[in-house]
Each structure stands twice: as C-alpha cells, then as structure tokens.
C-alpha cells in the first residue's frame, strides 16, 4: 500500500510542474500587454518603467517564470496587478466562497445523482428509468448558465422567493440568509454533476446486478436490502472516481455560473482576472485550483483500494 501511495505521489510532481509551465506560458503568449490594463497613458516613461520593474515585467520571460516558481514554492503567489493586493488575499476568500457553494452543490448532486441513478438502475427500461435517463441527459446537455438565468427569472424575479445574485451580507455566523443566497447557484452548479453521476450510477448498478455473485446472493435467499448493499459496495469505486472529478470541477468554480450570480468565488475571480489581464492573479488562481484538482484525484486514488481491495494488487 505504501508503495502505491508513493508511486502516485511521485506522479503528482511532474504534473504540477507541467501545469505551472503551461499556465505561465499560455498566459504570456496571449495577445495584449499584461500591463496595459493598468498603465497610465499619460504617465511619464520613468513612472511606467518603474511600475514594470516593480512587478518584474522588465525581465525576460524565463527569468520571470523561475522567479515566480521560486516565490510560489515559498508560499508567495505574487501580487495582483489591478488591486495591488497579495494574490493569496484575493484567492483565499474566493476559495472559501466557492468551497461553500461546491459543498452545497456536491450534496445536491450526490443525493440526487446517486438516488436517481440507483432508482434507474433498479428499474431498467421501465418508465422511471426512461424518465430519469432523459432528465439526466437534459441536465448534462443544457447550458447551466442558461438554467441559472431561468431559475433567477422564476424564483427571484417572478416569485421573489430567493435573491437573484450575490452573497449574503457578511455576518458573524453562517445562517439561513447565507443558505438562501446559495440555493439558486448551487442548484445550477449541481445540474451537470447530477446528470453525470446519475447516468454513471445507473450504468454501474446495471452492470453489477448482472454479475454472478448477485445471482448467488439471490439464490442463497439473502434479503433484498442486503443484496442492495452489496450492489452499492461493488458500484462505489467507479462512482467514487466520477464524484472526485465532479467535486474538482465544482471547487474549481464555474466562471459562467459565478458570473451570472455575481458569486464572489474562484470562477468569478478568474473571469475578473482574465478581463483585466491580471496575470499574477490568473497564474496563482489557476495553479492553486489545478493543484487542488490533482490532490483530490490523488485522494480518490487512495480511497479506491479501500473500497475495492483488488486494486491494491496493481
């Protein structure tokens, strides 16, 4: 098991290095000067040079990259160009906001996705299965920002039940008001993962139920409830892998959903950074999100052998 963990840990390092390199290169190759957004047109050459120098943009790109990488390794993600605040100060509250939304979204997609998937898997080719499969396909196919706009039009504008946008005013404790603001964006975010999880669970359940051991359990007269638990246990490694990827997507934040709901999370932050060419903020945010994604998948990889001991052999 230790060898399994170490091997996967070693895989992570080149992936993260590659992410940092690709992220830095692509951003710097994009058209438009990163300083244009903030550079005063009438400012003296001296001032403009001084500003460029102070952000390190006067150095050749390889030098900029290695300086950035060294700073990142020491925990410094740099300084946002637009707001002149440390990238961490920008990123930390955005991560918290997105994480709150992601947890809510994951809860919805897990409950709905697994529940619907199991139901569909157990009612294969019946009306319930067809209805759930169709709903899941629609959920995956419809642009979720469009669904967000529809939800806003119904529940905020027409019915006035929920806020149309934003996050609740800061308060000392997390309360009902915070939840009210999260309902519509969380449902919107959960739409795609719910569809994917439901379809995966359905397919896995159908597959597992065909296995001989399930027939054997039936033949041995085991109650349906116990057989159901066996099916769930055998289906869980596949489902876990899918959930891990979907959770990564949710924590990464959705640029479109967070922008539609003006939710100040990482997706919104990225959109802002892209629009203003705030390269340090973009680089820092992408790197942290990519690292999170890689680590999450690492944890999923670690968890899978516990659910399916056969994997320890590989």
């Amino acid at each position: 098991m230790l060898w399994y963990v170490l091997r996967r840990l070693v895989y992570i390092l080149p992936i993260l290095f590659g992410v940092s390199l690709v992220c830095f290169s692509l951003l710097h190759l994009a058209p438009g000067d990163p300083m244009t957004a903030v550079m005063p047109e009438f400012g003296s050459e001296e001032l403009i040079e001084q500003i460029k120098r102070s952000y390190g943009f006067d150095q050749p790109l390889p030098v900029q990259y290695f300086r950035w990488l060294l700073a990142v390794l020491s925990g410094d993600l740099g300084t946002s160009i637009v707001q002149d605040r440390p990238v961490w100060n920008e990123l930390a509250p955005a991560l918290v906001n997105t994480f709150q939304l992601a947890v809510f979204g994951v809860a919805i997609s897990l409950v709905a996705g697994i529940g619907l998937g199991l139901l569909a898997g157990y009612t294969r080719r019946l009306v319930a299965d067809r209805a759930i499969t169709t709903t899941a396909i629609v959920g995956v196919s419809v642009p979720h920002y469009w669904v967000g706009l529809v939800l806003i039009a119904i529940f905020a504008v027409s019915l006035g039940w929920l806020p149309a946008m934003g996050k609740a005013p800061p308060s000392d404790a997390f309360g009902f008001d915070d939840v009210r603001y999260m309902i519509l964006p969380a449902i919107t975010l959960a739409l795609i993962p719910t569809g994917i999880i439901a379809r995966s669970v359905r397919a896995t359940v159908i597959d597992v139920r065909k296995h001989e051991f399930v027939q054997t359990l039936h033949a041995n007269g085991l109650p349906q409830r116990r057989i159901f638990l066996h099916v769930v246990k055998n289906a869980s490694p596949t489902v876990l892998a899918i959930i891990g990827i979907q959770l990564g997507h949710l924590v990464g934040g959705s640029i479109l959903v967070e922008t539609v709901f003006a939710w100040p999370g990482t997706g919104y932050l990225l959109n802002n950074a892209i629009a203003t060419r705030d390269l340090p903020l973009l680089q820092g945010t992408i790197l942290v999100l990519a690292t999170f994604f890689v680590l999450l998948n690492f944890l999923v990889d670690l968890a899978q052998p516990f659910l399916d001991p056969r994997m320890k052999r590989h």
Binding site: P163, M165, V260, A275
Partner: peptide, 18 residues
C-alpha cells in the same frame, strides 16, 4: 455598491428588488 459585470444579472437584481 454591488459589482455585477453581467448585464442580465443587473437586470434581474433590479427587477427582483434586490
């Protein structure tokens, strides 16, 4: 002051009384 870069979001926020 609330930042809302998306025009549809601004319209919805106004129409919903937010």
């Amino acid at each position: 002051l609330r930042p809302m870069p998306d025009a549809n979001t601004r319209v919805s926020a106004l129409l919903s009384g937010q």
